[in-house]
């Protein structure tokens, strides 16, 4: 891992106001060199505005932003040289081929012709577009455009990559490839990656740390485990267990396990609430009684749950249905 403790991106009191509406509200953010940071938040939370300020495209109302020690507001040229920005819904000139579009970007970055051609060949191959490189971008699918976007960002060999909703609208296979590519960029090449997204699952897969962004404010920041720890409700652990052919006897058995506070059942799916992590004991007990487990999942440790809880804190009404269901299941057995 190329991660060090050098701070690559730092913002202090970064604020952006559009008229009376505050899009970003005193954002303090530090991102370390070589890590993948996920900026999470619903639509309109100010994620894109933040990325625009970091790339010097928009001036903040107040506050400062530094990338690798360079002021994003005062020295946008220096910043733009080391930062690759892939905007939300990245656009290319439809009448030019993929290769020509990349060539243009290379020219804008002042690359020599020979070096540019080599870089383009390498990047097209890396993003799996070698064959499509000579087709007009107008004929590209969304996934191909997105991959061309990644190639476009990499042309200038940036040390920081900022991606705005990179996984939006891509099929699962394309998503998998893209995620592998992003991970590769960070882990083997040591680039710092900042991803803004509202697709929690993908972010969870690749990000070292995440920041939750609600209403222009950063409400939480840290690794996913840290966030899960911070938000655990009433110090309760919740484990979802699926067994093959469950029955009422198992409910009773689980309730008798020391440390278990509650057990809910729905068909062969059990929700076990406990005061601490007792997964091992649960598994042993279930196996000992001759049941076979088909799946076991600790709830509340994935981003979905964390996200939901933060939104409740922030007064938002995220996915209330889901929560009710869990509660119902939970209280029925009490």
């Amino acid at each position: 891992m190329a991660q060090t403790n050098k701070i690559m991106i730092q913002t202090t009191g970064l604020t952006k106001k559009y008229g009376t509406k505050t899009a970003v509200d005193h954002l303090d953010l530090s991102i370390f060199s070589g890590e993948i940071f996920g900026l999470l938040g619903p639509n309109g939370a100010g994620k894109t505005t933040t990325t625009l300020m970091l790339t010097g495209l928009t001036e903040p109302t107040e506050g400062t932003a530094f990338i690798d020690g360079r002021d994003c507001i005062r020295e946008p040229m220096e910043v733009k040289k080391i930062v690759g920005y892939m905007p939300d819904n990245v656009g290319f000139y439809p009448d030019m081929t993929g290769r020509e579009n990349l060539r243009f970007t290379a020219a804008l970055n002042g690359l020599e012709k020979q070096a540019a051609e080599e870089a383009i060949d390498r990047l097209l191959e890396r993003t799996g577009l070698t064959e499509a490189g000579n087709q007009k971008v107008g004929t590209y699918s969304r996934g191909m455009r997105q991959r061309l976007g990644v190639a476009d960002v990499l042309i200038k060999d940036p040390s920081v990559i900022i991606m705005d909703e990179p996984t939006l609208g891509i099929d699962p296979e394309g998503m998998r490839e893209l995620i592998a590519l992003i991970r590769d960029l960070s882990k083997t090449e040591g680039r710092t990656v900042l991803i803004s997204s509202h697709q929690l699952y993908q972010v969870q897969q690749i990000c070292d740390r995440v920041g939750l962004f609600v209403g222009g404010k950063l409400t939480a920041c840290g690794t996913i485990e840290e966030l899960a720890e911070q938000t655990r409700e009433d110090n309760q652990y919740l484990t979802e267990i699926r067994v093959i052919s469950g029955d009422n006897r198992l409910t009773q058995l689980l309730k008798d396990v020391p440390g278990v506070l509650s057990v809910g059942r729905e068909g062969s799916r059990y929700m076990v609430g406990s005061s601490q992590d007792i997964t091992d004991i649960l598994v042993d007990r279930i196996r000992a009684e001759g049941y076979s487990i088909s799946s076991l999942r600790p709830c509340g440790n994935d981003l979905d749950e964390i996200y939901r809880r933060y939104f409740e804190k922030a007064g938002h009404d995220y996915d209330t249905n889901n929560r009710k269901k869990v509660k119902k299941l939970f209280s029925r057995s009490r």
């Binding site: 040229m77 733009k80 920005y85 000139y93 439809p94």
Partner: peptide
């Protein structure tokens, strides 16, 4: 409208 302006301006040009 085609979203190329943002990409263009994020390159190191004035």
């Amino acid at each position: 409208n085609s979203g190329t302006l943002n990409r263009l301006l994020s390159q190191p040009i004035y």
